[in-house]
């Protein structure tokens, strides 16, 4: 079947759009992959539990519990948001306390290494 002239242009337009959008996603994928290779730390989010943050930042969990002023718990699955609610504090406050504790702990672990700002996303 021979298509009308305008059908050809619609397909061409759609193809151009698809290529543009795909390129955008490809660039984002590559950028995230580069970030993945160069940064090990995750940005601390309200869903994360203390054991997860400790695992992600490779610091002992008791350091983080101490920073928040709560006793360490085994199999603690509470997200930060719930801990913040229990302490009548904002999640952001908790996150900054945790970041400070992580930086302190890392500075103690390797005194020669300069402490970095953990979990900064590009």
């Amino acid at each position: 079947m021979k298509p009308d002239g305008w059908q050809k242009w619609i397909v061409l337009g759609a193809l151009t759009l698809v290529i543009l959008v795909t390129t955008l996603f490809a660039v984002r994928t590559v950028r995230r992959a580069i970030f993945w290779r160069t940064h090990r730390d995750e940005v601390i989010r309200p869903w994360m539990s203390i054991p997860y943050i400790a695992h992600s930042y490779r610091v002992p969990p008791h350091v983080l519990y101490q920073a928040l002023g709560i006793p360490p718990q085994l199999h603690d699955r509470r997200p930060l948001k719930q801990i913040a609610g229990g302490q009548n504090r904002s999640v952001d406050e908790l996150i900054s306390s945790l970041n400070e504790a992580i930086n302190r702990e890392r500075a103690n672990q390797i005194p020669s290494a300069s402490p970095s700002q953990p979990g900064r996303s590009p």
Partner: peptide, 8 residues
């Protein structure tokens, strides 16, 4: 965050 918190 809500869903991941609930999952945790």
């Amino acid at each position: 965050d809500q869903l991941l918190g609930a999952l945790s």
